[in-house]
């Protein structure tokens, strides 16, 4: 796991963390496919999360959710910036947000790269929604600790 529980978070995160404690944890969903994104948002909401959807990595990075989210679920293959690049951008900025990467292409090499770079999980589509929820909850719980 790439998360470091004892390391103090960045200033932005701390102030946002105060808000988070009062409401449901925010889960960011990044996928260029509207239907897949919609289904995941509905799934997250049904589990009591505050789900926010983005149709691309740049849209997510530009949004306040970047500092608020407790977990990021992103597609691997996307135009402009793919899941691995998004992961790298967040890590480079010192953001230890737990990241779950999904793909419609099962590629062991890419999967390994993502895990090596600190992804919380690498899942293949079609997804098992229960499995995804378990992992999201685990990531959120680990971060809260």
């Amino acid at each position: 796991m790439g998360a470091h529980p004892h390391q103090p978070s960045s200033g932005g995160c701390v102030s946002e963390g105060g808000v988070r404690a009062l409401s449901n944890p925010i889960i960011a969903i990044v996928d260029d496919d509207a239907e897949v994104r919609g289904s995941l948002l509905s799934l997250m909401r049904s589990a009591g999360f505050d789900a926010r959807g983005f149709d691309g990595a740049v849209a997510f990075l530009d949004s306040p959710a970047r500092g608020q989210a407790a977990c990021l679920v992103t597609d691997l293959h996307m135009p402009v910036m793919d899941g691995l690049a998004l992961q790298a951008a967040l890590r480079d900025a010192g953001n230890d947000l737990p990241i779950i990467i999904m793909t419609a292409f099962a590629d062991p090499a890419l999967s390994q790269r993502a895990l090596d770079a600190g992804a919380a999980a690498f899942l293949c589509k079609p997804l098992d929604p229960e499995d995804l929820l378990t992992r999201v909850e685990a990531a959120v719980a680990g971060r809260d600790r």
């Binding site: 496919d33 897949v36 509905s42 419609a104 079609p126 098992d128």
Partner: peptide, 14 residues
């Protein structure tokens, strides 16, 4: 094909 399938399964379970 996997994209819509993934959406179907997720919507179904959700």
């Amino acid at each position: 094909v996997n994209q819509p399938l993934s959406a179907i399964i997720t919507y179904g379970k959700t």
